[in-house]
Computed example of a mutant assay.
Amino acid sequence: MNNEEEVLLKKLRWRCRRGMRELDQLFGRYLDRRWAQAPADEREVFLQLLDSEDDKLWRWSMGYEACPDAQQAQLIAYIRALPA
């Protein structure tokens, strides 16, 4: 990983801190296990998720409400399925 990628990852890790332990763990797990090899379109969907409001992210991630965007819903399902 080059310096530019390391800086981006640090910035993303900061953006993933949502103040809710469950979301912090889910998004951190994605960064640790998938971000580096994720294709550009998947990365873009993840960045869109990070722009969403925390309460919506929490409801979508916990399965209390369906995410209205199909790509984001698919990525949330993938993130939730990552082993702890």
Results as ranks from 00 to 15, higher is better:
residue 78 Y to C: 13
residue 80 R to G: 05
residue 57 L to P: 01
residue 59 R to K: 13
residue 78 Y to N: 11
residue 78 Y to E: 14
residue 65 E to L: 06
residue 51 D to N: 03
residue 56 K to T: 08
residue 63 G to K: 02
residue 52 S to H: 08
residue 78 Y to W: 10
residue 74 Q to C: 14
residue 52 S to W: 04
residue 52 S to P: 04
residue 67 C to E: 14
residue 81 A to G: 13
residue 65 E to R: 04
residue 67 C to Y: 04
residue 63 G to A: 03
residue 76 I to G: 01
residue 73 A to P: 00
residue 51 D to T: 00
residue 62 M to G: 08
residue 57 L to F: 02
residue 53 E to Y: 01
residue 67 C to F: 09
residue 68 P to T: 08
residue 76 I to S: 01
residue 52 S to Q: 12
residue 54 D to G: 05
residue 58 W to I: 10
residue 74 Q to Y: 13
residue 68 P to G: 04
residue 59 R to P: 03
residue 59 R to S: 08
residue 64 Y to E: 07
residue 71 Q to W: 09
residue 77 A to K: 15
residue 51 D to S: 00
residue 81 A to E: 09
residue 67 C to W: 09
residue 65 E to N: 03
residue 58 W to M: 11
residue 62 M to D: 08
residue 72 Q to R: 14
residue 63 G to D: 04
residue 53 E to K: 08
residue 79 I to G: 09
residue 72 Q to I: 12
residue 57 L to G: 02
residue 59 R to E: 05
residue 66 A to P: 00
residue 59 R to Y: 09
residue 66 A to N: 03
residue 79 I to C: 04
residue 81 A to N: 13
residue 74 Q to P: 12
residue 51 D to E: 10
residue 69 D to A: 14
residue 54 D to E: 05
residue 52 S to Y: 03
residue 56 K to I: 08
residue 75 L to W: 05
residue 63 G to L: 05
residue 64 Y to R: 06
residue 77 A to H: 10
residue 55 D to R: 09
residue 70 A to D: 15
residue 54 D to M: 08
residue 76 I to A: 08
residue 81 A to R: 15
residue 72 Q to A: 15
residue 58 W to F: 13
residue 70 A to H: 10
residue 80 R to E: 05
residue 61 S to V: 00
residue 79 I to P: 09
residue 80 R to K: 06
residue 79 I to F: 01
residue 53 E to I: 07
residue 81 A to L: 11
residue 80 R to I: 01
residue 65 E to C: 03
residue 77 A to N: 15
residue 56 K to C: 08
residue 52 S to E: 13
residue 70 A to M: 09
residue 52 S to G: 09
residue 61 S to D: 06
residue 75 L to R: 06
residue 67 C to I: 07
residue 77 A to Y: 07
residue 53 E to C: 07
residue 70 A to G: 07
residue 58 W to V: 04
residue 77 A to V: 12
residue 74 Q to A: 15
residue 73 A to C: 06
residue 64 Y to V: 00
residue 63 G to C: 04
residue 66 A to W: 05
residue 70 A to W: 09
residue 79 I to H: 01
residue 72 Q to K: 15
residue 54 D to P: 11
residue 58 W to P: 02
residue 78 Y to V: 12
residue 55 D to V: 13
residue 73 A to M: 12
